[in-house]
């Protein structure tokens, strides 16, 4: 926890030296990490597979945009976006009270398309296909509407959410999430109110998603339907799986990976020219990596890192581990 805060502070301190592109990279990864954290809470900890995360981010962006354009402070707009998205998320989660696993995943797929459709339909709120322009807004009265400001805001919010979620997981509610993920039937039998617990998961995850979506909206200055399509949902699921299902650092690592990888391929491709080829190659690398991960390390980069670290340390530990093992066997 302390390390986390130190890293965050250090990043914010270094920000001015990073330049605009550097700052952009920082907030792109950070915002994605907030979104991934929200999704990991839902999928990785509560076991509810969702393929409508992209659309929910969109709800957050539109909500924050509308509040911001109405003259609200950015902080208020983000909170409002969180609340609105939490409500929509609970609505999306309602089928989860009756459906499980695969069936629910398909229901969220439907939610994704229905929300996309609503983005185009509800023109007074969303400006339809053209998209909603979002004016910069002050944050707590300060003018932070530049790349570095956004980066700083996102980092602070990410740290707060990480701390919040890790605390949440140590409450009775958090433990019930995990129990439901492991076995809904067992949880129900133990007397856990499964329906209510799930709705809490959707609400909390939705709140964070809304904030991430709001940040996306403010930083890109526009919320348009094509930015929140199913592909974005897939990206986010990829993030948490690549990073590690049900691990908090995993969400961060996955976000970094999925955001930076296309960026890197893009840079590489630009030196070659030809935009179509570049985006094709980017997609192909992304697809291949997903598959490779799914086959060889379905528990994600975080687990892979842990294993590597153990292997590196193993020669020093082996003697100790052996005696430990002997002791524990003796007890049993």
């Amino acid at each position: 926890m302390l390390i986390l805060i130190c890293v965050a502070v250090a990043t914010i301190v270094v920000l001015p030296a990073l330049g605009r592109y550097g700052a952009y990279i920082v907030y792109a990864v950070t915002i994605a990490a907030i979104g991934a954290l929200a999704l990991n809470l839902l999928i990785g900890y509560c076991g509810q597979i969702s393929f409508c995360h992209g659309a929910l981010l969109g709800v957050g962006a539109y909500a924050a945009g509308n509040f911001g354009n109405a003259g609200q402070d950015m902080s208020i707009s983000l909170l409002a976006a969180g609340v609105v998205t939490a409500l929509v998320s609970v609505l999306v989660g309602l089928p989860a009270l009756r459906l499980r696993g695969l069936y629910f995943a398909i229901a969220t797929l439907a939610a994704q398309f229905i929300l996309e459709f609503l983005f185009r339909l509800l023109e007074p709120l969303t400006h339809g296909v053209a998209g909603l322009m979002i004016k910069p807004a002050p944050f707590l009265g300060m003018d932070l509407s530049n790349d570095r400001g956004y980066a700083a805001i996102s980092i602070v919010i990410l740290v707060a959410s990480l701390i919040g979620v890790s605390r949440l997981l140590r409450t009775d509610l958090g433990r019930r999430f995990i129990l439901i993920r492991d076995s809904e039937m067992v949880a129900r039998g133990m007397g856990v109110n499964v329906a209510l617990t799930k709705l809490w998961a959707f609400a909390i995850s939705g709140f964070l998603t809304g904030i991430a979506g709001g940040l996306l909206g403010f930083t890109t200055r526009i919320a348009a339907p094509e930015a929140f399509e199913i592909a974005l949902s897939v990206d986010y699921v990829a993030m948490i799986i690549v990073g590690g299902l049900g691990s908090l650092p995993g969400a961060l690592i996955g976000a970094g990976f999925v955001v930076l990888l296309p960026e890197a391929v893009q840079r590489f491709g630009e030196s070659l020219g030809a935009a179509t080829q570049t985006s094709a190659i980017r997609e192909m690398v992304f697809g291949l990596l997903i598959i490779v991960f799914m086959i060889y390390e379905p528990r994600g980069l975080y687990a892979l890192g842990g294993r590597l670290a153990r292997r590196l340390r193993a020669p020093f530990r082996r003697a100790g581990a052996a005696s430990q093992l002997a002791k524990s066997e003796g007890v049993n």
């Binding site: 597979i49 799986i241 697809g287």
Partner: peptide
């Protein structure tokens, strides 16, 4: 796990499109 397999098939889709 189920999610992993779903994602792998999505990976196939992404590659085919690419």
């Amino acid at each position: 796990p189920v999610v992993a397999v779903m994602m792998a098939t999505l990976g196939i889709l992404i590659i085919f499109r690419a």
